[in-house]
């Protein structure tokens, strides 16, 4: 066996009977005596205190988990053309970038190679681009400014994506109805609908003319997984939305409720 303890200094020592050399040098961590101050043993002193940070963090995290149950929409339906796709929030900046004309279509390489390449390439190669010894951010203004501007850019794009998505969701005309029949044609609600301006924009058969079809508004989703409620419709009628002007309904409050009742009956599925 190569393993020997006979004190022959010259002989190489191996671990057991393998050819791996015994590493007599301990793997000593760098010495912190160069940093004056109260250094502390990692184990157990520091770790015992660090648990507190983890515990506080965990409490906050579990509070979030308990407060908001994770969303689950309807099962994926590839034929659902009205669905507005939205990636998880940390991809929004890229998603938004590719919507701009100068970064899409013929210029797609700008949106998909040049800008992300500069961003992530710059991030990756930061140690080789900023090779000065100086570590304080204020003492290396170029690096700091580039970083802050890129950061603002990413935040701005994310914000723009989110804002645009909110607008799109609120003005999407929901899922188009598959069935093309008006529910309860004899209802007084339909009379009111015809008497008011609604019919000009939404059509005599609710098929939609200048406005979106109202067939099936009764169980329509707005954008993602939320239902378009009676309250929403009332709000649209009172205040208008997008290209639909406010105050299109002329009549008593009671009549408006009749119209709303009838609209909510329009369920096609």
């Amino acid at each position: 066996m190569a393993h020997n303890q006979d004190g022959n200094q010259k002989q190489v020592h191996y671990v057991g009977d393998s050819r791996v050399r015994v590493n007599s040098k301990e793997m000593l961590p760098p010495d912190y005596s160069q940093f004056p101050g109260k250094t502390e043993q990692f184990f157990p002193d520091f770790l015992l205190k660090e648990w507190m940070v983890a515990a506080v963090f965990l409490v906050g995290f579990m509070t979030l988990v308990m407060a908001e149950s994770p969303p689950l929409g309807d099962i994926a339906d590839p034929t659902n053309t009205g669905f507005l796709p939205v990636p998880d929030w940390y991809f929004l900046f890229l998603y938004q970038l590719l919507k701009y004309k100068w970064a899409a279509g013929p210029f797609i390489s700008i949106g998909i190679i040049v800008v992300p390449g500069l961003l992530f390439g710059g991030l990756m190669l930061a140690p080789f681009l900023d090779t000065s010894k100086e570590r304080r951010p204020l003492k290396r203004p170029a690096t700091t400014w580039i970083a802050i501007l890129s950061l603002l850019g990413v935040i701005g794009l994310t914000w723009a994506a989110e804002a645009e998505h909110v607008i799109q969701v609120s003005s999407s005309s929901g899922t188009p109805a598959k069935d093309k029949k008006i529910v309860a044609e004899q209802d007084k609600g339909y009379e009111l609908y015809k008497k008011n301006a609604c019919i000009k924009c939404h059509g005599d058969k609710l098929q939609g003319v200048q406005g979106p079809p109202l067939l099936g508004v009764g169980d329509r989703t707005k954008g993602e997984d939320e239902k378009l409620t009676r309250k929403d419709i009332e709000h649209i009628i009172d205040n208008g939305r997008g290209a639909m002007p406010a105050g299109m309904f002329q009549g008593s409050e009671a009549d408006k409720q009749v119209l709303l009742n009838w609209l909510m009956q329009q369920k096609q599925k």
């Binding site: 969303p71 099962i75 994926a76 669905f83 796709p85 990636p87 590719l98 997984d225």
Partner: peptide, 17 residues
């Protein structure tokens, strides 16, 4: 993985990108 509309369409867009 949850395979709801959101998942499906976001992935579709991601793959288009």
């Amino acid at each position: 993985l949850p395979w709801d509309n959101k998942a499906y369409f976001a992935t579709k867009v991601g793959i288009q990108i």
